[in-house]
Amino acid sequence: MTTMTESITDNPPPQAPVPNDGRQRDRAEGIVLSEYPRQETELGGKTIGKISCENPFMVVEDVNVYYGDNHAIRNVSLEIAKKEVIALIGPSGCGKSTFLRCLNRMNDSIESARVTGKIMLDGQDIYAKEQDPVALRARVGMVFQKPNPFPKSVYDNVAYGPRIHGLAGDRAELDAIVHSSLERAGLLKEVKDRLDEPGTSLSGGQQQRLCIARTIAVNPEIILMDEPCSALDPIATARIEDLMDELCEDYAIVIVTHSMQQAARVSRRVAYFHLGLLVEVDETNKIFTNPQHKLTEDYITGRIG
C-alpha cells in the first residue's frame, strides 16, 4: 500500500498544469479541432523534436495507415530504443492505437487496413514478406485497454504463450515460467493458491496484471500497451505503473495513455499525435515543461482534450 501511494505522489510531473484525467477524456470526445486552422495541423508532415534516439531498436520510417479512404496515420517516423518507456498521447481518434497496432502487425486482421512505409525491428523489416506475424508477436507483446484474460485458469492463461511457442521443455520448466511471470507481474502473492481458478474471477486490476504476466511469459523484447489503466481504479493503476517501472529494466514499453500524469510518471519520452500526424516527440521533461508546438502545448495544458 505504501509503495503505491508513494508512486502516486512521487515524481510529480514538472509543473504540468494538467486537469484530472476524466475531464480530459470527456473533452477529447467532443474536441473542437475545427478551431485549429487546417494549415496548422498539416505541418507539412514535419515532426518537431527528436524522433531519433541512441541505439534505436525499432525504427519506424514514413509509415502511413489507411482504413479504406481514411488516412489514419500520416508519414510518421519514430525511433524506439531498448529498455525505454515511450508514451503516445493525443486526443481520441488521432491514431495512437492504430500506430501501436502497426508495431506488431495487429492491423493485419483488419481487412480495410493498409500499411505503407517501413518498420524495422533490430534491423529486420517486420512487414517483409518472409516475416511471419506469429513470430513477430512473440517478440512484440501487447496489453489491451480492457483486461482480456482467456476463460481458462490463471495458470493456463500465463502458460498459453509458452505452450504455443514451445518455450518449455517439460512441465517443471513451464511451472517455472508461469511462476516467474506472475512474480514479475506482481501477482504471484495474490494468486498463489488460486492458479486453478478461472482468470476471469480475478478483480479488474488483477486481470490486467494477469494479462501482463501472460505477455511477459513469452519473454518479448517490446511490450505495447494500449491505455492499460483506463478501465482500472487509481490504486490498481498505481500498481501497474509501479510494475512498468520494473519491467522497463528488461523491455522497451510503448504505452498509449490519456493521462498526462501517467505519461509524466512512467515515460522517458513522449510522442504527441494529432489527426494522424506525429506532431512532436521529445524527452518527457521537455514536452511537459517546454513544448515547442502550439498543439502540444494546448493539449497538455488541457485546452484541447
Partner: peptide
Amino acid sequence: VPPSIREAALGIGAS
C-alpha cells in the same frame, strides 16, 4: 465469441 479473446490470442502470437 468476444473479439477481445481473439485479440488476446493473436497478441501473444497464436496463429
